[in-house]
């Protein structure tokens, strides 16, 4: 049975009732895990509190950080600070230079290309990402909030990007990108919406389940204190 994850939920950290409402809804919609976007300076007691809220709803809590660097050098400095503290690292690619640096860096998990941005996911980034761990993220909330000409443009861009990702065998992750509970939809509804940019049902289901799970497992094993190298773990100390 598939386990569905919504890796991009943006909670209002000041409003615990809102967070509980969002988590309850995610659980009812059939998700098994959620990636909550946290600030890089978040304290461990707050993280523990969020973990308990997720566990109360039967959700696997995934710590996620969204990086928004203005240049590649800033991205490298941010990655150095956050990589060991978060299970999922996403980079908002607002410029070509940042997108290329993020695509080739193995510490980056998700490439996020915001709608209406001049920078799009193209073959150059795809070629770099094919040699690293980066996946392409599609935030479905932007489709719900767009209409008319903007929606047409957005769908056209997504169709091209998903096609490029498929050609270069780059994994795609579908996330809600929701900051409130009315934007959340069940996984099967998102797979239906993904048909708007020609993503077939099986690929969309993988983008909501298998691909997020692979990212989480990979990073959790690396963040494990017993992790030494890929494929090498410390079992006991003599």
């Amino acid at each position: 049975m598939r386990r569905f994850f919504d890796l991009h939920v943006i909670p209002n950290l000041q409003d615990e009732a809102q967070i509980e409402g969002v988590l309850e809804k995610l659980s009812k919609l059939g998700y098994r895990g959620v990636g909550l976007v946290l600030p890089s300076s978040i304290r461990s007691n707050k993280v523990s509190r969020l973990r308990r809220l997720c566990e109360a709803q039967g959700l696997d809590f995934v710590r996620r950080v969204d990086l928004n660097p203005s240049n590649p050098k800033e991205l490298l400095s941010m990655l150095k600070r956050v990589r060991r503290r978060f299970e999922v690292v996403s980079v908002l690619c607002n410029s070509k230079a940042v997108a290329r640096q993020a695509a080739k860096d193995k510490r980056v998990d998700l490439l996020d290309f915001p709608p209406n941005s001049r920078c799009r996911f193209d073959r150059a980034e795809a070629e770099l990402a094919s040699r690293s761990n980066a996946a392409l993220e599609v935030n479905m909330a932007s489709l719900l909030s767009s209409s008319g000409y903007h929606l047409t443009q957005l769908l056209r861009e997504l169709r091209i990007e998903v096609s490029i990702a498929e050609n270069f065998k780059i994994p795609v992750v579908l996330s809600s990108g929701a900051s409130e509970d009315l934007v959340l939809r069940c996984p099967r509804d998102w797979t239906a919406v993904a048909s708007l940019f020609d993503m077939d049902e099986e690929a969309a289901l993988r983008a909501l389940s298998d691909t997020p799970l692979e990212i989480i497992h990979r990073n959790r094993s690396k963040l494990d204190p017993n992790f030494l190298l890929p494929g090498v773990r410390l079992i006991s100390k003599g």
Partner: peptide, 16 residues
Amino acid sequence: RCSIATVTKVNGRPVA
């Protein structure tokens, strides 16, 4: 299903 899921407002009020 896609059409149903993409409805966000009815008469100016948010819905899902």
